[in-house]
Simulated assay, not measured.
Amino acid sequence: MNTVRTGLLRELRSLPLHSLTLARLSRHVAATKSIPRLKHVAETLQNFHDVPSTKKHTQYKILTTLLLQLYCQWDNSFSRLSHLPPHLAPFEQDFPGLVRIWPRESHLSLKQSTKGHATLKHAWVTNNKHALQMSFDAAAANPTSGNIELRGSLRQILSHYQLLYNNMRMFGKIKLQVPVAEIPLNVFGEEIPACRTANLLQRKVGYVKRVLIEELPALYNTECIAELTAIIAGDGPAARSGNYSPRQLRRLYRRAFAGCYTLASTAQEGQNGGVHSFALRMLCPT
């Protein structure tokens, strides 16, 4: 095991990455107890060296995957940061509570509503500025609307999701769903059973949780944020670029982290105190 680790640490120096990244990756390899992860790093190194130096695009893809894993997963994982960000904690601490108060839109209520009634789904699809408040109002109208603290967390969760939904183009080809749970009618035009409604709500809450925590998580590790900001800006210690020019190296990092973002809390206060919305900052602004 130690022999493999020593060999990996020696081989890492051959990667055309910034010196700050190589130092971080070396620390990670030296400290990790995960054998699968060490094997993964070894395979990545082998794959990279198997690619001819003339095929820069393929090299970029291999290095991009490694960079994203290092900064956005391994060193940004919530186990390393001790806990989920406060506004996402209810996904783990009170998932059933979120399911109970999650905004929903019944097709039966739409059928019975007046002509021209604005639907929640339409508000989200058209990026209506009132979509967030409409969703929160729909949740608050629920008889089991939960306690004040949980409702505040719901607003923050939806605010976070709205930032991603309204800026989908910044995250490549990802197509996000509307966060509102749609409750359809059965073939007879009647409400579906409560158990089916509960399943639809659980799936929707689970989907939003997966997006915010696993698929498109914000970069929360302040050390990673500062390090990447310096690298992308061309600041900090000199890069160890190998066969890559400094310009090619910056291009690699900009491509790799084009869809990465950080969250900044706004000064907006809710009725019950606490920040209820966020501002999104892309790590690589266009």
Rank of each mutant, 00 (worst) to 15 (best):
K121L: 12
E214D: 02
Q133N: 00
R13K: 11
F188Q: 12
F257M: 11
L212Y: 05
T3F: 08
V187E: 15
S159M: 06
Q177M: 13
K209R: 06
L63S: 07
A23M: 10
L8I: 08
L150R: 00
T286S: 15
L12H: 04
H83I: 04
N167Q: 02
W102H: 00
H117R: 12
V187H: 13
G259F: 12
L12A: 10
R151C: 08
A230D: 12
H28R: 11
K209Q: 02
W74M: 06
Y220L: 03
R203H: 01
W124M: 01
L84F: 15
A226M: 10
L70Q: 10
S53N: 13
L17D: 05
H87G: 00
R100Y: 09
P237C: 01
I192Q: 01
A42V: 00
R27Y: 08
Y253E: 04
T6P: 10
M282P: 07
H122N: 08
P285W: 07
W102I: 02
G7L: 07
A238M: 03
Q73C: 15
I148P: 06
I225W: 12
P179M: 02
I192G: 00
L9T: 00
A264W: 08
E215M: 02
A239R: 06
I174N: 08
L185H: 02
N127I: 05
V275Q: 05
L263N: 11
R100D: 13
E269W: 08
F95L: 04
T114R: 15
N127A: 08
A31Q: 09
L212C: 12
L164M: 11
L66W: 07
Q177R: 13
D137E: 01
Y60K: 13
L263V: 14
V205M: 01
T262L: 14
N47E: 14
H107K: 14
L8C: 04
L67G: 06
I183H: 02
S77K: 01
M168H: 08
R250M: 05
T266Y: 02
P193T: 11
L212S: 07
T44P: 09
S159Q: 00
G259M: 14
L212Q: 03
D50E: 12
N142F: 08
V99M: 01
P285D: 08
L9G: 03
R37H: 15
Y165A: 03
S79D: 05
H276I: 12
A42S: 03
Q177Y: 09
G259R: 15
T58N: 08
L38A: 02
L88G: 11
H122D: 12
R24C: 06
G236M: 03
N221A: 08
Y71A: 00
Q156M: 04
P217S: 10
H160W: 07
G242L: 00
R210S: 00
D235L: 03
L280Q: 10
R24S: 12
T54Y: 14
V205D: 02
P36E: 06
H57A: 13
G270A: 02
Q73G: 12
D94W: 01
N272T: 05
N186Q: 03
T144N: 15
E11R: 14
N243A: 14
M1R: 04
